[in-house]
Amino acid sequence: MPNSVPHHILLAEDDDDDSLLFKEVLNELAVPANFIRVKDGEELMHLLNSPNNKLPDVLFLDINMPRKNGFECLVEIKKTDKLKNLPVRVLSTSSGKELVSKMYSAGASLYICKPNHFAHFKEIIHSVMSTKWSLFFPQPPFEKFMVQM
């Protein structure tokens, strides 16, 4: 893996299975990462807003979550000065165009459609991790926004 590997990855995902798969991907890719998972939007915002917390390098955000969904979290993050530069990568089952545009307008930096194959998931995460996203800061062009397999 290249040197630019993020050290601190935060995953907001209510589904244990998806979370497990994500962790397995990281394991198999052998990404040396400090991985933290929160189970819903409220928990996510609480963690991000707590004063002593070190911000993650990147946030993977599931949209469909209880209490506070991914979109609400995204809007809140982009409204908070302390958090607005945090790269937010959206994870979603849906590839509906409306939803993708909505997340793009809200300021997400990537939209990943959850693939059906584990191998595909691995490929996607690998390619996401090895891309120099700082070149596209704060957002990539819309054509590159959605990653699907």
């Binding site: 589904d15 998806d18 798969l21 089952t93 849906s94 059906n116 194959h117 584990f118 191998a119 998931f121």
Partner: peptide, 19 residues
């Protein structure tokens, strides 16, 4: 839309099993 979720998992974990 909601049916997709468990199905995706059936396939992913199936993959894992074979792999």
């Amino acid at each position: 839309h909601d049916l997709q979720e468990p199905l995706r998992k059936i396939r992913s974990f199936g993959d894992r099993l074979v792999y």
